[in-house]
Design a protein around this nucleic acid. Structure first.
Lengths: 288, 288
DNA sequence: ACCATCTCGCAACAGATGTTTCATCGCGCC
DNA sequence: GGCGCGATGAAACATCTGTTGCGAGATGGT
């Protein structure tokens, strides 16, 4: 009988097996990933056994041959359909209107755990080196793009532009220059606008940084840096943008850090100007 | 040059590849686990391409052959040797530019934990009952406001307005009517614009919902509902908006849930219209 | 309209794969 | 001690692997 959990079947059958088969079985149990990926002969060499042993082991477990066992091992290792999110509430109870917020917040918190910092720092390097930075995000990602645009302008006032931010976007896309950096933000389903922005940027010779929800995203094609976030679909609602925002913010912060003293100086200048214009209310804590 | 992150190399090289190689590359990117485990010929059959295509793809990426690429894909999927060796960043190390993103993401994840769901659901009730909803957010909160505005309009197209979204904001503020709901988003330091929006809304007899970072926030004065979020200040940088975004999204979702069948119908209509306009790219997974 | 170049499927290729056979070995039993 | 039987490894086997040479077709530049 073919088992759906090969390693369990293996362990169960272990005591009744001849010595060499036992050794092979233990080796497979301890290196199941290698058993699934490497060839039988390589495995035999690593385990110090004969290739035939592994065929016999598989047959002893009820598989037609080694290929059968390996196929089962592979299926065990196959990642779940949902990329890197723990399903939030296992028992999907009826989504009462009252606990929708709780569910969503829970999902958001979980999605932030999957973000990686290293690629963000690398992407920030590309932005830092670019003479001009364009930011593109459309529809639901527009807000995120605007935010990134705003934060970057705090310390790089003159050379950051939001695609489609001041007039028709084709004018912006026509102004792209080689060496500029383009940041495109999007997730499935991907808007045509975002794809066009990415494509045009590539053709113009820009350095492309993409924030997306999947490595296979169309807008990610040709990107120099791809920053993945999880657009966790809420309970029956549209996807969450928290991961995208956190990524964008981290990108801006890293960029600022790279800017060093000049960036800090420009940020201070911006703050001083805002204070002079009385854009913000005075902090009652410090003014009293 | 052989890349250590094969999918990234693949994505980068994609635009410069011939059509069939592009198709193969996309297929590999979307099914990287199968590419790592199944044989090249099986893959070719599944992708509807010639086996040779995959060899050529690997070579185009700088690998000696398909085996090289597959080995790289396998290494990408290999589980970490020590399962739960989550490196915890030692507290208050020197804030290197490289680990700024990590710090920020960590802070974001922590800040989401403090959010409460119950007030959000209550506030959603107020929005749901209002004949018209205004959303106000300025400067760094503009993006958040825009996002909330966008999401609400998905299922309540006609009666949501962004203050200052289409022309001078005083015109919007002049149009406020008693019974309308006003959502104001802001955190310290509070912009004069946001305070004015809140004040005017109160005077006009609107129901005021405020998203802020402190109970003592000026813009929260007189608010019917106050949704607190944590604007965690990053390492030497401006505050994080993740909490505000998560709150806004949860608010929109709760509002949608309250809308019941009509809201769902309007959302479906919106989606159908977008699909008809081909605003979004078709999902390759379902179309093929 | 021409030609050079590139693309790409087909089919033959050498090599590697998993399997099987077979002779040998070790071990317990009569 | 002789015998039978399962375990074991080496080698031969058919099959499948990834690769490459070839030619038809498409493409782009002049």
């Amino acid at each position: 009988m073919v088992e759906d959990q090969p390693i369990a079947a293996l362990r169960r059958a272990l005591p009744g097996l001849p010595p060499r088969l036992q050794a092979a079985a233990r080796f497979v149990a301890r290196h199941d990933f290698d058993a699934a990926t490497r060839s039988m002969r390589e495995l035999a060499a690593a385990a110090g056994a004969s290739p035939a042993t592994f065929t016999r082991l598989a047959q002893a477990l009820g598989y037609a041959g080694w290929d059968g066992l390996r196929a089962a091992l592979i299926e065990t290792r196959r990642p779940p359909a949902t990329p890197f999110s723990r399903r939030v509430s296992p028992a999907s109870a009826p989504p009462t209107a009252a606990d929708i917020p709780a569910r969503l917040l829970e999902a958001d918190a979980a999605s932030l755990g999957g973000l990686e910092a290293a690629p963000i720092a690398a992407a920030a390097g590309a932005l830092h080196a670019a003479p001009r930075i364009w930011v593109a995000g459309f529809r639901s990602c527009r807000g995120i793009a605007q935010l990134l645009h705003y934060q970057l302008r705090l310390f790089r006032p003159a050379d950051i532009a939001l695609v489609g931010g001041a007039g028709p976007e084709d004018l912006d896309l026509g102004a792209l220059a080689a060496g500029d950096a383009m940041v495109v933000i999007g997730f499935a389903p991907y808007s045509r606008q975002s794809l066009r922005a990415a494509r045009v940027a590539l053709e113009a010779g820009c350095r492309l940084v993409v924030l997306a929800d999947a490595p296979a995203a169309p807008i990610a094609e040709g990107a120099e840096h791809l920053l993945l976030f999880e657009a966790a679909a809420g309970p029956g609602f549209f996807p969450s943008l928290t991961g995208a925002l956190a990524t964008a913010q981290a990108l801006a912060a890293a960029c600022f850090a790279l800017g060093g003293e000049p960036a800090l100086a420009r940020l201070r200048a911006t703050e001083a100007r805002l204070a002079a214009l009385a854009e913000y209310l005075p902090d009652p804590e410090t003014s009293s």
